[in-house]
Amino acid sequence: MNKIATAEETILEIKDLKLWYKVYKGYSKVLDGVNLTVRKGEKVGIVGEAGCGKTTTVKSILGIIPEKQYLIPGGEIFYKGKDVLTMSEKQINEIRSGEISMIYQEPSAALNPVFTIGQQMMDVVRFSAQGKGKDKKERKKMVLQAIQDVFIPDPERIFHFYPNQLSGGMKQRICIAMAIMTQRDLMIADEPGTALDVTIQDQVHKTLNSLVEKRNMSLIMITHSLGVARELTDSINVMYAGNVVESAITSEVFKHTLHPYTKGLMEAVPRLAGGGIQSGIYGSIPDYLYPPRGCRFAPRCPRATKECTEKKPELIDVGDRHKAACFHI
């Protein structure tokens, strides 16, 4: 019935990851102990509002946050049993070129404006685990195939295009093509489609979904929309201010919502059936320079007590693969 029940092999495990950005005034303590597990073939969603550390979390897996800008005071990221944080640049490059690929949030920003689609994709293939050692002709064939795989007609023509000659949807497809050019085991999709209008977004999601399933990849899908997550993922991790606050199988999250933040998120979704926008959550994400001492959600939480402001709740098992970090569940 569910893939998770059959495939129990863990491919990625993030344990208590903390990441601080260096800023002028000190450290911006963005990640405050993220826990995340991805099993083989599983589609995992990370949901949360803008600025909660979703992108930072996945970028730290690949080690692509510019150096000198951050500090990792604690935590581990195990990919297939090995901690990527302790790997040498050469080892981690092997993972980047052959194991994990990522689709970036903003397609216009993820493509270099002064090189053609072909030039960029050729270099990506050239240094990928599969493309290494292949001659130019073979590599071009791989690139054209990838462009075709994301349902773009006439790949030969697109090959010579510059990014600014393509529409937003086409650019996002090219980004996906770049990520699926060679076989990878884990795909990270950082809000693919957020920059696009709804119909195009739907097409992009479907394309991505079918490719992931066809190639038997695991997927981490970042989104701020619970609706998208419900449609595309097997399990959901709700993030708030650098913490995973609730984690469960997708249907379970919607059936037995536990964390007050997740509840708030659900109430914030406008419903077509009427009633307009519900209560939602007031306030905004805390200042990461001086985050709240206890639960980071406490200042906005309708159920916060004194305990919440003093102690940080751990992400605890509440049964049936359902975890939550709250004192009041």
């Binding site: 970028k59 690949l62 692509i64 946050i65 510019p66 490059n93 092997e94 980047r96 070129s97 052959g98 690929s101 990522m102 970036y104 949030q105 903003e106 920003a109 993820a110 493509l111 270099n112 404006p113 090189f115 960029q120 270099d123 990506v124 050239r126 240094f127 990928s128 685990a129 980004c175 770049m178």
Partner: peptide, 23 residues
Amino acid sequence: MGRDYLAAMKGYGVPNRLIMNKY
């Protein structure tokens, strides 16, 4: 340097030297 297209290139395993001198 902080642009996503460079992070993307790095994320695909393209060597740093090439990213710097070309992209």
